[in-house]
């Protein structure tokens, strides 16, 4: 994977500046007073971060669901994908359920989950998992399936045990795909976190968003979303750094 160079950053900044200028220009000439300009959004973000204690509280509450739910998705999703990828009987059993999870719209299930688990953290964690886990599992499975059979045969020819084949061939070979799943899963987990808070459990950042939009404070709505995006980018770059460390051999396919 290539390192991001100074030039990349300069180009990115240029795109950002262009987009922001367009945004600013377009809105300062339009009659729409509900849409905030970029500068208003930036000011709102500043206020949110430095003068609104409820923002940090909301961020903390939302992140409980996000981090616990995402961590659980990783801890359950990766082993499930590994097994489905290597053990054919396991794959036969899991396959239809993974298909269901993959195509099932999760939002309509939120009320059902809340009826079952209540309005607390458990529901939010579970919903984050519903959003994220299947993408981690199917990517891991695909990664295991994509490991060259010739490499497994090579390992066997040297007398490698199944455990050695797992540790030395399958897991390293599947890592790039596992990371792809982790990234998609993270995006989905964040969606799940915000969605459940918007739809039914008025807590955390979702509650803040509802309040701001109820009061027509669109600049604060934008600012809150921006804060969510910034957090997501930070998490993604941590993951990317990790990937660079453990799977640097793979062709660069990552986004984010």
């Amino acid at each position: 994977m290539k390192k991001t160079t100074f030039r990349d950053w300069a180009s990115r900044l240029a795109v950002f500046a262009a987009a922001v200028s367009l945004w600013e220009l377009f809105l300062s000439h339009s009659q729409n007073f509900l849409l905030p300009t970029f500068s208003h959004t930036a000011i709102a973000l500043f206020n949110l971060v430095f003068q609104e204690p409820r923002f940090w509280e909301a961020l903390y509450i939302s992140n409980q669901a996000l981090l616990v739910g995402y961590a659980a998705s990783v801890v359950i999703g990766i082993p499930m994908g590994l097994l489905a990828g290597r053990v054919h009987n396991m794959d036969r059993i899991l396959n239809p359920y993974l298909g269901v999870l993959l195509v099932m719209p999760v939002a309509p299930l939120i009320p059902v989950v809340i009826i079952a688990l209540g309005l607390g953290l458990a529901s939010r964690v579970f919903i984050v998992m519903l959003f994220a886990i299947v993408f981690i599992t199917i990517n891991t499975r695909a990664g295991v399936r994509g490991v060259e059979p010739a490499l497994i045969e090579m390992a066997q020819s040297f007398g490698a045990s199944e455990a050695q084949i797992w540790r030395r061939i399958i897991v390293p070979g599947a890592l790039p795909a596992i990371f792809a799943g982790l990234r998609i899963g993270l995006g989905r987990a964040i969606t799940g976190m915000v969605m459940v808070e918007l739809l039914l459990v008025a807590s955390g950042l979702g509650r803040l968003l509802l309040e701001f939009s109820g009061r027509m404070q669109s600049d604060f709505v934008f600012a809150t979303l921006l804060a969510v995006i910034i957090e997501a980018l930070v998490l993604l770059s941590i993951m990317q750094a990790l990937e660079r460390k453990v799977a640097s051999w793979a062709p660069d396919i990552s986004v984010g």
């Binding site: 060259e148 010739a150 490499l151 045969e153 090579m154 066997q156 020819s157 040297f158 007398g159 030395r168 061939i169 390293p172 070979g173 890592l175 799977a247 051999w249 793979a250």
Partner: peptide, 19 residues
């Protein structure tokens, strides 16, 4: 099964790309 007295050289090299 495979044994320590034998070693195989493969047509498509079968090298681990990460190592």
């Amino acid at each position: 099964g495979p044994g320590p007295e034998r070693a195989v050289v493969f047509q498509n090299f079968a090298l681990m790309p990460w190592a």
